[in-house]
Each structure stands twice: as structure tokens, then as C-alpha cells.
Amino acid sequence: MAFRRHKFGSAGIGLMFGFSMCITLFGPSNDFRSGVSTWVGLDKQLSLGRVIGFSYEDPTVSGDGKPITVILNKDPKTGVAIDPPIRAYVYKPGVKFSPGVNHPELLGPGVEDLSMRDGKISSASMSSGAVFTVSKGVFNDEEVDYIENASATRGWTPDKTLRTAGDANSRYVGKGKTIYISEGCWWCHTLLPEQTQDWQMFGQPPFLGDFNGEMPTAFGSDRKAPDILHVASRNSSREWMTMHFFNPRLVQPNSIMPRFDYLWGKQDANGNSIDFAKWRADYSDYLHGKRIYAPEVPEPARDSEVRALIDWILTSLK
């Protein structure tokens, strides 16, 4: 065999495949790197933490080890009122930081510089926990948002911050998005209003800098239901959401969304155990006209999954 065609062929495959990998992988990575984080991008990554989905800190994908977003109306250290209230992202000791804190180069030019210089993010330590906020600053005459390590700049500790906010002002956003992933909501819903025609119905499409540090993005490719990136600005009623998740047909008779009543867990907010069988029987009576009103939906417990899910929707999706 003078002409070694398998050698020639293998080299050819390597060459061509390598070439197309260069174009499709190396090329775009330059563009992605120049994306400057927007406020949305920073808010998202700080409230979601390192990874949603399978990871060392959350191997069962149930929302463990995620940061907590709180709404502060007074300073946790000094007690001075904050008006209007601001968001702070509380990382208890041991909770993994969001990617941008550990790798500031992900934040994009400008945001990186300010977060390091004014935000002091490099002094945050995972073992003692930290509280972050998003602040506004000026870099090269442009206004940018950057991450501030409030534990270093204002002396806020995770514990005190959580206590100041209280449960009423805590939002379990990271856990909520985890539920979104593990329950497969993204097989029906999308988080990406399309650039061409979705403005009217679903709101503004996202920008390049809205995603820095988010993992996974879970855009969804297959829409059988409304895009929910901006659902909270269409409908911000916690009561509606609660009824809708328990049984979508309570508020939207033609919906094909599944019931998510199992996200309530065993007990309601008052510690009473939830009698699903009775609820179903009553509901069936209601459908058959034997009751005038549908049965009441139990109030979700503090640490229930559905509470976190609604927190995420109402806090993050605006």
C-alpha cells in the first residue's frame, strides 16, 4: 500500500474538524469575554450563587448551599433607615461565592475594576461568609454597576443582615431557580423573549451582559407556555402564583400546566399537615357543581419549595 489513505484521511479529518472548532469555539469566546455585566447580570449571579443544578454543594439538586437575597430597609450595622430599600445577597459561612466574585474577569471591563477597587470583593472569605450589594460607580466616564462586598465596606455580617431583614424580607431566589431546573419548568417555559417579535407580549429581550456568571442559563428551546423572563412585571400577585402552582386550573381553566401541589411538602405555614386527598375530593365536587367555591389552597410553609419558587419569580423575573 503505497498510498496510505487512512493516514491521509485521518490527518484530513483532524485538520478540518480542528478548523471548524477554531471558528465555532475560539471565535465567539472573544466576543463573550468583552460583555460588560449589567445590573441584571450582577443581580442574577449574586442571588443564584455558584451553580444551579448538580454540584458538590448540592448533589441532589434541591437548593442547598445557595445564597439568600434580602430586602433591607435599614442598615444592619448602624440601624439607619435605608430609603428606598435595597437588595443584599447574604452568603452564610461555607456557601460558595458566585463566579464573578472568585473570577472578577468574568464581570467585564470596568465592572471588574470597580468591584476590585471600590467593592473590595477580593477580601471576601468563604469560610466567614459575606454580604454583597450592587452599587453604582463611574469608570472612564461611563456609569457602571459593580459588586460591593458590604461585609468589608460597611461591616455587615451574614447573621446580622438576615436578622435585620427577617423572614418576611428574605427571598430564597437561589433555591427557587434550582426548583425551576429540577422540576423541568423549562421544558415548557422559556427565559428568553425573542429579539424579533416578543416585545409586546413578553417584554424586552435580554442583553449581552445579562448573563455573566449564570450557570446554567436554561433558556429553554421549546415553548409550550408563556415566556416568563418578565412575568413578575405582568403579574406580581403572590396569591395568584400560589393558587396557580397548586392547581393551575383554579385560575386558568384551559391551562395545560401540571399541578405542583407536591412542592408544598407535608405541612402548611401553620404546621398543620396538608390533606391532599380531601382537597382533591372537594375539588372534584366543585368541578361537578356540588360546591360553589373551590377548596382553599393551603398556605405554603416557610421552608417549602414552592415558597422559594415564588420568591424567585417575584424577585428575579421583572
Partner: peptide, 15 residues
């Protein structure tokens, strides 16, 4: 993206 924690649009694109 999962092994090296690549994030954002890079992750979406690689998916």
C-alpha cells in the same frame, strides 16, 4: 461548562 464552571452565554452557546 460543568467541569470548569464556564458560565453565562458561553454556557448557553456550548450547550
Amino acid at each position: 461548562p460543568e467541569l470548569f464552571n464556564l458560565t453565562g452565554l458561553t454556557e448557553a452557546y456550548l450547550t
